[in-house]
């Protein structure tokens, strides 16, 4: 991360300004809330804001530690997400070897590939090698029941929690046009737009949300929230174009694509939660639920963003 660039300074002022402002608002509302539900809502806002402080500080620390630090932090994110995912997913004793391999062989290998920047192997390790290795190990468990489902679930977890998330630190290996803030700006753009889209959808939904889109999967996601949130986050993307190789209008378009991927990523993860009959993936992040609840929209947007950049914007 290039600390001397004015772009970095503006970004830091904006991010910590917004966090400070939400903490201030939370503090004022806390003193004003009278009803029981009002207090609960404000408490939720305050814990969410506090968790955002932690997440933002962790992200900036990782990014300033360069590629190694960023890779390690996202490896930890993948580990915690995979842990939540597999805890909730029904497995059998016969899957033990496959699950152990997923945690302690596939995950470290994938992030080691990120660290070395070996793109060819990075791109095929999970979809090809893990795909054949996991059912190979499952067969040795000798259990027939739900055989296809069990393998599919494990492979899904690896794709979503490990493979897709590993595309975020892999952004640092792309050779795009010289960036004012350094390659860390690519990650910050992705995270700010995708997570911003979540926050704006929540806010627009609260303000004027009426028509739920898929009430059975996610009753709180409304059409008004989606349109308002996605447009606002696309504008945010356009405003952050200096972090990226895009001119403003392209930044808005890429942000739009990320928001749509993020929306469906969140919806898919929510559908899995409904299927399992749970509300949150875990209790790791106060006010948010688990790690998976926070990164569900990044799972789908990260790989698409990576390939947009790699295909259209890298020097060859």
């Amino acid at each position: 991360m290039n600390w001397s660039s004015p772009v970095t300074h503006h970004l830091l002022i904006a991010v910590f300004g917004i966090l400070g402002l939400s903490s201030l608002i939370g503090w004022i509302l806390k003193r004003r809330a009278v009803t029981e539900t009002g207090r609960a809502t404000v408490q939720n806002l305050v814990s969410r804001t506090n968790s955002w402080w932690v997440m933002v500080i962790v992200l900036f620390t990782a990014l300033s530690a360069g590629r190694t630090g960023t890779t390690l932090i996202f490896a930890a994110v993948s580990f915690l997400a995979l842990r939540e995912y597999l805890t909730v997913t029904p497995t059998r004793r016969a899957d033990h070897a496959a699950l152990f391999t997923a945690f302690f062989i596939v995950l470290p290998c994938q992030y080691w590939l990120v660290h070395t920047g070996w793109y060819g192997m990075f791109a095929i390790m999970v979809p090809v090698y893990a795909f054949v290795l996991i059912p190979m190990l499952t067969t040795l468990g000798g259990e027939v029941e739900d055989f296809l489902e069990r393998n599919a679930r494990t492979q899904w977890g690896l794709m979503v929690c490990v493979y897709f998330i590993s595309h975020i630190p892999m952004l640092l290996t792309l050779e795009v046009e010289p960036l004012r803030m350094g390659p860390a700006g690519l990650i910050l753009f992705l995270v700010a737009v995708t997570q911003g889209s979540d926050v704006f959808q929540y806010v627009w939904g609260k303000l004027c949300g009426r028509r739920p889109i898929v009430p059975r999967l996610s009753p709180k996601k409304t059409l008004e929230g989606l349109v308002g949130g996605v447009l606002t986050a696309s504008l945010l993307g356009a405003a952050m174009f200096r972090l990226t190789p895009f001119p403003p209008w392209q930044a808005a378009l890429v942000a739009l694509a990320l928001c749509i991927m993020g929306f469906f990523g969140g919806l898919v993860m929510s559908a899995i939660k409904r299927e399992r009959g749970i509300k949150d993936w875990g209790t790791l992040i106060e006010g948010h639920g688990g790690m998976m609840d926070r990164i569900d929209s990044l799972c789908f947007s990260a790989p698409v963003y990576f390939h947009i950049l790699r295909y259209f914007y890298t020097r060859d």
């Binding site: 842990r83 939540e84 597999l86 805890t87 004793r93 033990h96 152990f100 945690f103």
Partner: peptide
Amino acid sequence: KGHLLPVPLI
């Protein structure tokens, strides 16, 4: 039962 290595679920 019958395994030596743990899988870190919650």
